[in-house]
Every structure is written in C-alpha cells, then in structure tokens.
Design a protein around this nucleic acid. Sequence first.
DNA 1: GGCCAGGCTAGCA
DNA 2: TGCTAGCATGGC
Length: 310
Amino acid sequence: MPVYSSVISLIPPYSFERLLRRLQTHPDPQLLVDAHKRVLRRVLRVGTRPVLVSLQFAGTTEEPFLRLHTPSSLSAGEQQQLEQTVRHMFCADLDLVPIYEHMRHQPPLAILTERFRGLHPFLDSDLFQSMVKTIIGQQINLAFAANLTKRLLELSGDAVEDDEGRVFLAFPTEEAVARLEPEDLRPLQFSQRKAEYIIDYARAIVDGKVDLGRLWQMEDEEIIACLTSLRGIGRWTVECLMMFGMGRPNLLPAADIGLRNGLQLVYGLTEKPDEKDIRRIGEAWAPWRSICSLYIWEAVGAVKRKETWE
DNA sequence: GGCCAGGCTAGCA
DNA sequence: TGCTAGCATGGC
C-alpha cells in the first residue's frame, strides 16, 4: 500500500498515448511502463534519497491528471519537493492551446497539432542527468544511447527494490560519476572521449566549478557561453539541456540531424536543410521553438515507427 | 558492407 | 571566422 499519494493536475490537452508512442522511439532505461494500467514507474531522487514512484495517468486527454504513489514515507518538505519534480518532468503547467494557435498559422506545422495533439515535452528530472544523457547521445543513434545510459545506471546507480523484489536503478549521483575513470566506462562501449567528457563534467560539479542551481537565473545565451567552456559540451548539448532539462520554451537545436531530417520531411524540402536554413525557418516559431522542434522530431519518430504523420 | 546516428575537438587556412 | 578530418560504435 502506498505510504504517500497525491493528485497532480495537468493542463489539457494532455495525451498519455502520445507519450507512450514517443517512448517507443525514445527509450528511457529508467522508466518501467505499464501501458495497460496507464502507469509509469521509476526512481526519483528527493534530495539525494532515491524514492520509487508510481505515476498513473487518470482522466482523459481533455481532463487529465496524474495519481502519484510512493511506498516511501516522506516528510512534508520531501512530499512538496517530489511533487515539484513530477510537475516539472511532465510540464504540468504548460498550456499547449496558445502554442497550437501559433503553429496553426504556419501551414507545415498546423497538421502536426492535430496529428500529435496532447504531446507534451517529457523532461529529465534534474540537470545533472540531463547533461550526462545528452553527452551520451552526441552523434550516436537513440537506441545505442539508451543502451549506454542503461549500462551507466547498472555500473553506478543506486538500486531500489519494490515490494515484489523488482530492482529499479536511480541515476548515478555527481559524486558517483566523478569517482569513475574513463577505463571504467570503456568496457561499457563508451568511446574514450565520451567517457572523459562525462566524468570531467561530473567532477566540475563536485569541485564547485559549475553550479547547476545558478543556471535557472541565467539567460539562454549566458548558459550556452558558460557551459560550452567545458570540453565536450557544444552548443547543441546546451540547447538540449535547456529544452529537456530545464523545460525552456524557445530553443532550436539547429545542428541536430534529427531536426534537419524532420524539417526536410515536414516542409517537403528537396534537400536537407543546413543549420542556417533551420535557424531561418525556425524564426517564425518563436517564442515556442522548443515545442515546434519537439513536434518536428515526432514526425520523424512516427516515420520510424512506421506510422503516418500526415 | 556501407551509411547514418538528436556532435565535438583540434588543426589549419 | 569557417572548414574538415578524426573520433567510435551500434543499427539497419
């Protein structure tokens, strides 16, 4: 029986089915999905404490809400923190209606608002893991990236068991990753450079050279300038961090190969657009370029899943 | 077996 | 400032 449960309100339209579809092409090794029960389970950190959480989609796309359960007993402060994390991950306060209105004025995007109606961004629970996952995802396909993330979890994550003895792994802490050496990650099929980038990043945080908490107060370009000074972290990586870690609304990772493919697909271009082309086209998407990018990516995802996107 | 993956660095002109 | 080889491995 859950020791703590609560209800998380969501702004309609919010489609669980669309999230499930997205998870097919964007596997998340931390999530256990029970589509039938409409439940997602994973470990979230409350402070540094790993807590197993069950999130059930209740209601409908037009009247959505989440039921949050956890078998852990939590203090009032921990309850508040956990709910805040869940609201952040699910973008509980993001209203898609005005964004769809904006997209409907741009013909190639208009069709996506119907096709993927109710798809919200699904964010990372904290900035450390968001950055690590993004570095892992540089230049490799999503399936392989998910494998590498899973292996990192198995190497350094904290195990939490549910009442049926199933093991869930919490994302490794900064300290745990900082203690690793590249040689520890090489057998997991991390490239030497990728291993160095991730460990260096974790050490920069542990050493206090990077203060992730301070990023929330900074402008987008300021964050890019700050983090790209670290080796292995380029503009694309920080843009992804701001989109999928911070949930900022107006990012356009113009160098992204998936976005380039998606724009060619959705806009019916004869040639693959380059970074400049994408920035030019994406100007009209402001101030919602992150959501427009997400929907463009999802058109590519639909093709990969052999769905139609039109 | 070749090309593509939700890139980045270092070296060079 | 802008261009490019090299990295490194899975998936199709």
